[in-house]
């Protein structure tokens, strides 16, 4: 019996390469399934759903989205870009400072917002920045001025909250990258008469560009898709797109326009990343 079995075995034996491919596939399968079910399927469904409305298949939802929420689309883009720029500035400043000087207190404090959920961050800022909030009460006590305007429920309060909540993650990433750049590069530039600002701008940032890009993309995506913070502290008109989406679904059961607004947000994200990528590529060519 045994020899016969030994003869048969080679015919069903798979090559090592194939076996590796199969076991590799089996290993990634759970992750792939989760990705398909929770991400790719909803994405396709939302894109497909954006073309379906009571009037049939077509661009009706997009037409409605642009007429009703055109201002909100522009507002969302504006807030997100302002937030992005400010997060970049604050994160790079903090990271540069910590790159050159070891200050454990700052190193600890800047990370705190990372551990605060969006909901709490929004509520904290709302209590802090409201017209009769803690900040204005303190200012009134010190200066004697009363009836100060509040920053909450305006775009300024919204941006302040976003920046406060988003800059720690960007700083964490950028600081890590900055610290992996060897001191010798910076020392060389300082020896040749450069200052620290130039060292950051012309040495650290270019070397760390991939990480900075990742930090900025993460900031951008989590800002444009955030519902909680605009809900808690943003103005009630205009509003960010997630609020409009929630409204169409919760109050009107209108998934079509909500999906159209979703697709518009995807397009905004794609457009801005394309712009950024082509810009950096151009810069590299030059």
């Amino acid at each position: 019996m045994q020899p016969r079995a030994a003869v048969k075995r080679p015919s069903i034996r798979v090559s090592d390469g194939q076996r590796e491919a199969v076991s590799g596939l089996v290993l990634v399968l759970p992750a792939l399934l989760v990705l398909c079910v929770l991400y790719i399927y909803p994405l396709c469904a939302s894109i497909a759903g954006s073309f379906v409305s009571d009037e049939g298949i077509g661009l009706h939802n997009f037409a409605k989205a642009f007429t009703l929420y055109g201002t909100d689309i522009l507002f969302t883009i504006g807030i997100t870009i302002i937030t992005l720029v400010l997060v970049f500035v604050v994160a790079v400043l903090t990271a540069s400072f910590l790159r050159f000087r070891n200050w454990p207190f700052l190193n600890f404090v800047y990370r705190l917002p990372l551990f605060i959920p969006y909901l709490i961050a929004g509520h904290t800022m709302r209590v802090f920045l409201a017209p009769h909030g803690i900040l204005n009460i303190l200012i009134s006590r010190v200066t004697g001025l009363s009836d100060l305007p509040g920053l909450a429920f305006s775009w300024i309060g919204l941006v302040i909250t976003f920046v406060w909540k988003q800059f720690p993650l960007a700083t964490l990433l950028i600081l890590g990258a900055f610290q992996s750049v060897e001191d010798s590069y910076i020392e060389a530039s300082l020896n040749l008469g450069g200052n620290k600002v130039r060292a950051v701008w012309e040495i650290l940032l270019p070397i760390c560009r991939p990480t900075v890009l990742v930090a900025m993309v993460l900031t951008f995506v989590s800002t444009i898709g955030c519902l909680t913070i605009p809900l808690l502290i943003g103005p009630s008109k205009p509003v960010m797109l997630p609020i409009d989406m929630a409204f169409r679904i919760n109050y009107m059961g209108d998934w079509g326009v909500a999906n159209a607004l979703g697709v518009i947000s995807y397009l905004i994200v794609i457009a801005l990343s394309m712009y950024y990528l082509s810009y950096t590529v151009k810069k590299e060519d030059a």
Partner: peptide
Amino acid sequence: TMTSGNAATLDMLSRGE
């Protein structure tokens, strides 16, 4: 003043805004 929800109206009312 446009508030941002049921709770926000109560909130601003209670703070005297």
